[in-house]
Design a binder for these strands. Sequence first.
DNA 1: CCCTGATTCGC
DNA 2: GCGAATCAGG
Length: 186
Amino acid sequence: MSWTDERVEKLKQLWSEGLSASQIANQLGGVSRNAVIGKVHRLALPGRAKSGGAAPSAATRATARNTAPPRAPNFASRAAGRKPSDTPVSAPSAPRTAGATALKQEIVAEAEAAPEQKTAPDNNVVPIMRKIALTDLTERTCKWPVGDPTQDDFYFCGCESPENSPYCKYHAKLAYQPASDRRRAG
DNA sequence: CCCTGATTCGC
DNA sequence: GCGAATCAGG
C-alpha cells in the first residue's frame, strides 16, 4: 500500500484529532503503526506533546537518544529474522472504505444484522464485557457491537480475541453460527 | 502483558 | 520515501 494523497490527508486529519498511531493504522488499513509514525515524521507533523509545559525540544530528546546509539546488530540479515506477524487480518468490520461516516454505517449494519442481544442474556451471560469504545478496538479486542450505535450506551465487547478473530471466543460462536441456529441463540 | 511515540537505517 | 526493528517509556 502506498501513501496516496488521500491516505496522507486522512493520516494528517486523524493524527491531528489525537488518534494513536495504531488506531490510525487500523483505519487506514494496510499499514502498520510504525508506518504511520514513520510517515508522521517524514511529513514533519507535530509529535505528541510531551509533559506539562516546559519545552523538551531537541536538546532533551537528543540527550535521551544518545544513551542508546550502539544499536545495529547488522549481523546476517534483518530480513531473515523478520517475523511475519504483520498479518493484515482485515476483520469483517474493518473500515477500509471511507471516513467515519462510512465506518459508522458499517457498524450499524453489523449491529442490526447480527445479534438479537435481548435485554436479558439470561443463562447466556457472556464472559466479561469490557465495554470499550470504537477507538479502543485493536486487533485483539472483541469487536462485537452491543446495543444501538445511535444510542449513548453503545459499546463493543472488547474481550480478548485470538489475534486473528475479530471476536472473542464467545462472540465468535454467535457470529459464525448459521442463521438458523442464531435465531434462538440470540 | 498490553500499549504509546521516537529513532535508525537497510531496503 | 518507506517501514520493521528497536528503543524508551506508561
